[in-house]
């Protein structure tokens, strides 16, 4: 029961991007095309899941005075692992993501979950929490990238979708401000549905 709530909460009602407004920087930067957004989402999911798991396993031994440093070391290690693997096996995508893979280290979602959840919960719960938060982030990224790629390039995952019907690409969609606007619209829709999120 608790576990399933752990999992579903970050996907919608407490989504890290559109409710907590974390990880916006990369959400704006890597959502021009679906493929990099997808890979970025999976990379962040991997990092949040395993940093949560590792920190939860270590939580009783970590000296509280240096816990932030320990968290950073764990997260940075996982990010380097992801970066190295992308460079070796998904070179094209890694080129498109460029610095943003490295910047997962500074993604507030990762450290936020470690600090807020993993340090006080059991490994399995923490792992699930990490996966769910990563997927919540990935979902928004893919959603934004869907609109940006469709209307900015007329394609989806690189396949021609509407360009063949004479659609003229709207290059405004390719600029970061448009990602911000799309995220804003998603937040708007999300809040209209979940009325309890609206401030009085």
């Amino acid at each position: 029961m608790k576990l399933s709530k752990n999992f579903t909460n970050p996907l919608a009602a407490n989504n890290p991007v559109i409710v907590q407004i974390l990880g916006i920087c990369s959400a704006l930067a890597v959502t021009v095309k679906l493929e990099p957004a997808f890979v970025m989402g999976l990379s962040v999911t991997f990092v949040t899941a395993f940093s949560n798991l590792v920190m939860s396993l270590m939580r009783n031994g970590v000296p509280s005075r240096i816990r932030i440093i320990v968290q950073l070391v764990v997260i940075a290690t996982l990010v380097i692992v992801v970066d190295q693997f992308l460079r070796a096996f998904m070179y094209d995508v890694s080129k498109q993501l460029s610095v943003y893979v490295g910047l997962i280290i500074t993604n507030c979602i990762v450290m936020g979950r470690v600090e807020a959840f993993a340090l006080g919960n059991k490994p399995w719960d923490s792992f699930v929490d990490g996966v769910a938060n990563g997927l919540g982030y990935a979902f928004i990224l893919v959603l934004v990238a869907f609109f940006r790629e469709l209307f900015g390039s007329g394609t989806l995952f690189g396949f021609d979708v509407i360009a063949r019907f004479g659609y003229v690409n709207n290059s405004l969609m390719l600029f970061p401000p448009m990602a911000l606007i799309i995220v804003g619209v998603i937040i708007w829709v999300h809040r209209s549905i979940n009325k309890d999120l609206q401030e009085k």
Binding site: G61, V62, P63, S64, R65, I66, I69, V70, V73
Partner: peptide
């Protein structure tokens, strides 16, 4: 766990 010796050993091993 908050003694300096523990912290130093912990960091060294981790790194």
């Amino acid at each position: 766990k908050n003694s300096n010796a523990y912290i130093i050993i912990y960091t060294v091993v981790m790194v």
